[in-house]
Amino acid sequence: KKYKIKVYVKDKKTKKWKKIKEIEVDTKEEALEAIKKLPPNYEVKIVP
């Protein structure tokens, strides 16, 4: 079972969220580790 991490950042001009990358991992633990490495201003969604 794979997890997709969708990473969004808020556009300063439009104030809208835009997706900047998608990370695919195998476990939820890996997903949480990957999220920890991202800057705090990123919004993250984990999709099972």
Rank of each mutant, 00 (worst) to 15 (best):
K19E: 05
Y3I: 07
K45P: 01
Y3D: 00
I20F: 06
K45M: 13
I46Q: 01
V7G: 00
K45E: 08
K15S: 09
E33A: 11
Y8I: 01
K6A: 10
N41P: 06
K1H: 14
A31I: 14
W17V: 02
I35F: 03
K37R: 13
Y42N: 04
P48M: 14
T14K: 07
K16T: 06
I46Y: 04
L32Q: 12
N41G: 14
E43N: 13
K15R: 13
K4Q: 05
V47T: 11
K10S: 03
K18N: 05
T14R: 08
I23T: 04
A34L: 15
K12G: 08
E22W: 02
K37V: 08
D26L: 08
T14M: 06
Y8W: 06
V25Y: 12
D11K: 04
E43Q: 15
P40Y: 08
I35Q: 04
T27M: 02
K15D: 08
E24F: 14
K19Y: 10
D26I: 05
K4W: 07
K13R: 13
I5L: 13
N41R: 14
K13A: 10
V47P: 02
E30I: 05
I35A: 09
P48S: 14
T14N: 08
K28H: 14
Y42S: 07
E24N: 10
P48N: 10
K19V: 11
E30K: 07
W17D: 00
K1D: 07
T14Q: 05
K36A: 08
I35L: 09
E33T: 11
K15I: 01
A31C: 10
I23S: 02
K28N: 07
P40R: 10
D11W: 04
I20W: 09
K37I: 07
E22I: 06
A31F: 08
N41M: 12
E43C: 15
E30W: 02
N41H: 15
I23C: 09
T27V: 02
I46V: 11
I46T: 03
I46H: 02
E22N: 03
K21H: 11
V25E: 01
A34Q: 11
E43S: 15
E22C: 06
K37C: 07
I5G: 00
P40G: 12
K4E: 02
D26V: 05
K37N: 11
L32A: 09
E22S: 04
V44E: 01
K19P: 04
D26E: 11
Y3H: 02
E24Y: 15
T27C: 04
P39H: 07
V44A: 13
K36V: 05
K36Q: 10
E30G: 05
K10P: 03
V47R: 06
K16Y: 05
K15E: 05
K45H: 13
K45T: 12
D11H: 09
K2S: 10
T27L: 03
E33V: 09
K21R: 12
E30H: 05
P39Y: 09
